[in-house]
Design a binder for these strands. Structure first.
Lengths: 193, 193
DNA sequence: GAATTACCATACGTATGCGTATGGTGCCCA
DNA sequence: TGGGCACCATACGCATACGTATGGTAATTC
């Protein structure tokens, strides 16, 4: 009988994948090395090659896992009650651009870096982006914004949240809080001044 | 007498740095290896270690070179005649978000990826960001925008242009042209609809 | 309780990459 | 014209990392 509640002392495939996400966030794809990962897991690579055919096998699994998680997350975060679409948009902006959820953003950036040099990763990023833009666009249209502009604002929204993570600004600065609010207003389409 | 017009058949320090930028754009910092670089230059690493103490020496030089180039570029691009500030802003947005200048953006992204794991790189990126925000803020204020909002719009501007480069959208799509225009309007503060 | 299975360690060969040491070659200049 | 210098090649030792082969162990199964 399988014990699912208590984490097994043995490593399974998913445990390796989760550890891979940690390494991905900290060191990027290039820093994701199986022997290093094994050391971090307290085992040797003999274990790794039991669960995975090779390094690429792990990378593919990481990508698929990331894709599924992102899609699930998007659908969850953009599900808004009628009339709550605007606050939903603001919430999405806030969740992504805040300094919390830092690890998730580091993974996001690592995957996008990955996608610049790997066709498979690029394809998955395109897919995730496509869904994100669709979901956000739906929210904007529900706010009464024309389809064309809704798509533009969606693009601006995600470009902003990813871009702001690339910039070395102090995101915990209380002075930044007001600026983030202003930017959120600009993207969401509210009045600023 | 030094020949400056004709490129020397010998490699000098700057030639190595330029080649390093190519490698940086294509493979990131982690892919910037001295033996690989030497092969690309048609020489062996014996040449490299003549011009540089070690790999870190090259990386530091690349960083400094990037910083100087960026600062020079910012000052040049944000120098606007009185009354031309708005078009100057739009021009900055267009230059960065367009698919041309692709190599420059790849280097930009590589350096920012680098900065996430290296304190020196992070410091230089902060410096460049600071100057960029100051220069853009000056343009916005010249357009009659309040200092607070000017800073927010500057932040949005650069976050957008870097973020859009992270997204795998078809930037050559003629459909995208209209959206980029709409976004440019939103950032610059023009009317959209 | 013997055999099978799941999981992991160890050892090996190969490749890549760093940094050093040393040797070679063409050019400049006294 | 011969020594010195700038520039580069070659060879070495070392470290890391991939993938494979094989051996070990604990738990499960029959």
């Amino acid at each position: 009988m399988k014990q699912e509640s208590r984490p097994s002392p043995q490593l399974d495939r998913d445990a390796w994948i989760q550890a891979a996400f940690d390494s991905l966030a900290d060191h990027g794809v290039d820093g994701l090395r199986v022997e290093v990962l094994a050391k971090r897991c307290g085992v040797t690579k003999g274990s790794f090659y039991w669960h995975f055919r090779n390094r690429q096998d792990l990378l593919s699994a990481v990508l698929e896992n990331w894709k599924d998680g992102r899609i699930r997350d998007i659908l969850k975060q953009t599900r808004a009650e009628p009339g709550e679409e605007l606050s939903c948009i603001r919430h999405v902006i806030e969740v992504y651009s805040a300094s919390r959820n830092r690890k998730g953003m580091l993974i996001e950036l690592a995957v996008r870096d990955w996608a610049r040099r790997d066709a498979t990763a690029a394809q998955i990023v395109r897919k995730v982006d496509s869904i994100r833009l669709d979901c956000a666009g739906r929210l904007f249209r529900a706010c009464g914004i024309a389809p064309e502009e809704a798509r533009s604002r969606s693009l601006l929204l995600y470009a902003y949240v990813f871009g702001i993570s690339l910039m070395s600004v102090e995101r915990n600065d209380p002075l930044m809080a007001g600026q983030r609010q202003t930017i959120s207003d600009l993207i969401a389409g509210a009045k600023v001044s």
